[in-house]
């Protein structure tokens, strides 16, 4: 995923701890092999090159269906085809009968970057929870954070954004995703409605139960105009957005 991944958890058995961390790493590598459009052998790379329909595996098919559902729920602002030239939406069709997918045109390029990060983070959080770890923190590239349980010495995990270290966000069996230009000022989020790069004078954080939904929502909200925030969030109970100046 070409990003920094950190896992913090407390365990009395070092060997078991290393095995858990190793399992998470293995899972992330497997997800990358599916979702990376930069790996020539990945299904996503194949789909972006396919002529006509292409049968895909269960994981990718589920992702494509979910992403289309999320596109609709976010009023079109979360779109894995946002990097494609502005055109017809949905940009692809899923064919349930044989789990195949067909793009609307050869210009459609699907990018699962945000989705894959949130999806892998969510799976990692579940893996740590199932390993009976009630105190863990996962950081994917600083922009996506998931908490299992609480800090060993507190009632929650306290996370502060780089942009505003005075701000403290409390996490407890929940997640945080931050989207924006960061301190560098370089924008990489495209508004899929008008095809322009989204530029705002703040970063946007979303907290909630699912790391995947946090990722999707922070991307969608940053791409959307502020007037759309409430409408988008109305469909997602338990998720909150915060502007970070």
């Amino acid at each position: 995923m070409h990003t920094l991944i950190e896992i913090l958890f407390v365990h009395h058995d070092r060997q078991k701890a290393e095995a858990i961390a190793g399992g998470v790493e293995q899972m992330i590598r497997e997800e990358e092999e599916v979702f990376s459009r930069h790996l020539p052998e990945s299904p996503v790379a194949g789909l972006n090159m396919a002529v006509g329909s292409m049968k895909v595996g269960e994981t990718l098919y589920f992702a494509l269906e979910l992403c289309e559902a999320m596109r609709k729920e976010t009023k079109g602002y979360f779109d894995i085809a946002a990097l494609s030239s502005f055109g017809e939406r949905p940009a692809y069709k899923c064919i349930p009968s044989n789990h195949s997918v067909v793009r609307n045109s050869p210009e459609v390029m699907l990018d699962f970057g945000g989705y894959a990060k949130g999806y892998a983070l969510e799976k990692a959080r579940q893996m740590l929870s199932e390993a009976a770890e009630n105190s863990a923190l996962l950081n994917f590239g600083n922009s996506s954070v998931a908490a299992v349980g609480t800090h060993p010495f507190g009632e929650h995990w306290c996370i502060s954004p780089q942009r505003n270290p005075e701000m403290v966000i409390h996490l407890r069996d929940s997640a945080l995703s931050i989207s924006g230009n960061g301190l560098s000022g370089k924008s990489h989020i495209v508004n899929p409605i008008d095809g322009k790069t989204a530029v705002k004078n703040y970063d946007l954080g979303v907290t909630g139960k699912s790391a995947l939904l946090c990722e999707i929502l922070s991307t969608a909200l940053y791409a959307a105009p502020e007037s759309e925030y409430e409408k988008i969030l109305a469909s997602f109970s338990g998720y909150e957005a915060v502007k970070v100046y």
């Binding site: 990003t3 920094l4 950190e6 913090l8 407390v10 923190l137 950081n139 590239g141 600083n142 922009s143 954070v145 800090h151 060993p152 010495f153 507190g154 995990w157 306290c158 996370i159 502060s160 954004p161 780089q162 942009r163 270290p165 403290v168 966000i169 945080l176 931050i178 989207s179 924006g180 230009n181 960061g182 301190l183 560098s184 990489h188 970063d203 954080g205």
Partner: peptide, 23 residues
């Protein structure tokens, strides 16, 4: 996270400053 690990090992409850846009 590294700073937080050092704090936990020292028995300190602290907040970690790292959340931001993609690394």
């Amino acid at each position: 996270i590294e700073q937080m690990i050092a704090d936990i090992e020292a028995g300190v409850f602290s907040n970690a400053v790292f959340a931001g846009t993609s690394w």
